[in-house]
């Protein structure tokens, strides 16, 4: 039997922002969501802008705790969220940023140092690896982020659109790496606008709309429903 690595039960998260002295604006970003990700899954999250995908990833990463519902995860599970452009110190070199990322994921300084060459090689940044991140293109940033995430081998890797930028070659390499990961122990949750990317990479998926789950299960079934809906909307 496949083992669940993280399980959401009726999870709700509401944003609340002050818009006046006594007025508040509230918005349910995630609304009564239940699903399970199994060990070794490459799990896709589909949905339009503002459907709650990024919030879902933050919940999966443990950055947010839900307002309602339960998230079950083993305390020892290591997890890391890759988002574009965030979490890098622009003044520091790629090497220094990678070192900080490694240490934040629980590696000692010496262990982190030993991973750096591997990250440099995977990211294909060459000389730029020693340059400040502010000189990077967005594609280069995503390469650095992806390389760091993959090399670290966290138990649960969460990827937010990082693969939608960068050149075709690197994207292919990244996709191939993810495909290889499916055979291994690593679990990946992957957010994308791109249906084809989800179809290619993910064995299971969920489709989010306005914070609610419309469909969940095998990627093929979810995508079929998604496409039908798109057609209906277009008509």
């Amino acid at each position: 039997m496949t083992k669940s690595i993280i399980k959401f039960t009726q999870v709700t998260l509401e944003y609340s922002a002050r818009i006046g002295l006594f007025k508040r604006f509230t918005h349910k970003a995630i609304d009564d969501v239940s699903f399970e990700v199994y060990k070794g899954d490459v799990f896709g999250v589909l949905g339009k802008n503002g459907s709650g995908k990024s919030t879902l990833l933050k919940l999966l990463a443990g950055v947010f705790e839900p307002d309602d519902g339960v998230i079950e995860i083993n305390r020892k599970t290591t997890r890391s969220l890759l988002t574009l452009g965030l979490g890098f110190n622009n003044q520091l070199s790629g090497r220094d940023n990678a070192l900080i990322s490694c240490m934040l994921n629980g590696f000692s300084k010496a262990q982190a140092r030993s991973k750096l060459e591997e990250i440099k090689e995977f990211s294909e940044l060459d000389k730029f690896f020693e340059q400040p991140v502010k000189s990077y293109s967005s594609g280069m940033k995503s390469r650095l982020g992806f390389a760091t995430g993959v090399v670290l081998e966290v138990d649960l890797l969460l990827i937010d659109e990082v693969l939608s930028v960068g050149d075709a070659d690197f994207r292919k390499k990244a996709e191939l790496t993810l495909l290889n990961k499916i055979k291994g122990e690593q679990t990946v949750v992957f957010v994308s606008h791109s249906e084809s990317q989800i179809q290619k990479l993910c064995n299971r998926s969920v489709w989010l709309d306005k914070g609610k789950i419309i469909a969940a299960g095998l990627t093929e079934d979810v995508l079929n429903m998604y496409k039908k809906q798109e057609k209906r909307n277009a008509a």
């Binding site: 110190n89 003044q91 900080i100 629980g106």
Partner: peptide, 24 residues
């Protein structure tokens, strides 16, 4: 992150921030 790792991280990050400033 355990306590020792935190201390090591705090020191490394502080040195990196100094370095970043000297770069700018």
């Amino acid at each position: 992150m355990n306590f020792r790792q935190s201390l090591s991280f705090i020191n490394t990050q502080a040195l990196m921030k100094l370095k970043a400033q000297s770069n700018t």
